[in-house]
Amino acid sequence: MKPERPLVDVQGLSRVFDASKPWLNRMLEGEQRMLLKAVQDVSLQIGRRETFALVGESGSGKSTVAKMVVGLLQPTAGRVTIDGVDMWKTTASDEMTALRRRIQMIFQDPYASLNPRWRVGAIIADPLNAFGLTKGRDETEAKVAELLRLVGLDPADMHKYPHEFSGGQRQRICIARALSSNPEFLVCDEPTSALDVSVQAQILNLMRDLQDQLGLTYLFISHNLAVVRHMATRIGVMYLGRLVESQPSAELFKAPRHPYTRMLLDAVPDLKMSGRQRRMIEGEIPNPISPPAGCAFHPRCPLALDRCRVDVPTPFASGGRTLACHAVEV
């Protein structure tokens, strides 16, 4: 084990959403409650200055995990501990405020996450004011200018409105806002999915530079394995609410263990046209309201055993990797 305790420690995190019809409809139509288990029993640790990436397809629960880790959504079960503070147990409000300053989030759509009626300067200064980090207008303005320079924008841009910027520039503004409270931990939910590739490259490079410069820790959510490979030190693969595999990035790409991870890697288009052998994936992602019994992946799995149809595989950790599969040894 590492001597240093991880910055972020997530244990047995679960979240259930109630997707049932209203009570009266249920009574009249004789329907059952419908519970959607968006996240089930997810555990992970993120060390300081690491980038932990969560990958998975739509409905795998990766964004729900992000929201619970950042404190926007209360877990149904499980614990999120950040630097020794249990986020959902702490009642001391000053401890919570101190924690909030150290965690920030970057969202997918830079068009929806900036208030169109606010000037960029006010948007970036908002966390500064909320946490009382600067004194007086001059100091705030100087700090905003510094942040804008840090993300590659012009300090004069603080007087403009968000609509005057392109998608990539807006994402830079979102990053500047996230950095304004001097956070240690950034949760990035698909930060480049809405951007064009050439702009995506700019943002990914910027995020890496900032990590080196400021010593940031990232939880990086993405559906794009190639992007994740570029960013992450450690990768967790999610399928229908469960973490099926997690490994250091280099090893995951060299030796993927879980059949779903292998399938995801095979599905990435082969840009170099190297003639890499690929297996076609069968079937679709099941409905999360009525997932298959046993291992949720068994209907699509080429290695499925009889046991997979009955027992949910428990995650087994060994040698720095975690795997939840009956058919493959860790």
Partner: peptide, 21 residues
């Protein structure tokens, strides 16, 4: 454009970036 696309094979630490948009 080709250099800015992250790939599964590449091991580069920085992506080629085209300035501007």
């Amino acid at each position: 454009l080709m250099g800015s696309i992250p790939t599964l094979e590449g091991s580069e630490t920085r992506l080629v970036q085209i300035p501007g948009s």
